[in-house]
């Protein structure tokens, strides 16, 4: 085959496998309703932890089971708002210790939420997000950013 005639953009079978693997869209019927139900139960627990002043538990709960790959953005939006509420309710001088108590995979999820919110500056307070972002990098290094960038499980 002449390389000049080779169309590198054609979708071959193996490319389709790769594409499926990197897009990670949740196409199951009822995925949205399932996520909605999970969000509701999560949300009430998080509010309870916020009222008790337990910011670490509230944050850990808020970033658990992230709604990945949904076509509809309403659940990710609501989840992000929930994470935002937790961040806003905790004192900024506690941020480093809270982040330090999270596991690395939790920090990666938190970063995903922060980037998701930063992409929507009309709805979220970006200056606060920026200071949390700074503290995450302070705790776990830029490796976490690399992991968020390469991870195909996106909000």
């Amino acid at each position: 085959m002449s390389f000049r005639k080779l169309d590198v953009s054609t979708i071959t079978e193996e490319k389709q496998i790769l594409l499926d693997r990197i897009t990670q869209v949740n196409t199951e019927p009822g995925a949205n309703e399932e996520a909605e139900r999970k969000f509701q139960s999560k949300s009430s627990q998080v509010r309870a932890f916020i009222t008790k002043g337990n910011a670490l538990e509230a944050l850990a709960q808020a970033i658990s089971e992230p709604p990945y790959g949904l076509k509809d953005s309403s659940i990710p939006d609501k989840s992000a708002q929930l994470v935002m509420d937790v961040l806003a309710s905790s004192r900024s001088q506690d941020a480093v210790s809270i982040i330090g108590d999270l596991a690395e995979n939790q920090r990666v999820v938190l970063l995903k939420y922060i980037y998701y919110m930063m992409a929507r500056p009309a709805y979220f307070n970006c200056s606060m997000l920026l200071s949390w972002h700074e503290k995450i990098v302070q705790v776990s290094g830029i490796g976490s950013i690399c992991r968020v960038l390469s991870d195909r499980h996106t909000l």
Binding site: E104, S140, G141, I142, G143, S144, C146
Partner: peptide, 9 residues
């Protein structure tokens, strides 16, 4: 067993 590096890849 996966170890997360604090730096670039």
């Amino acid at each position: 067993y996966s170890i997360q590096s604090p730096t670039v890849p």
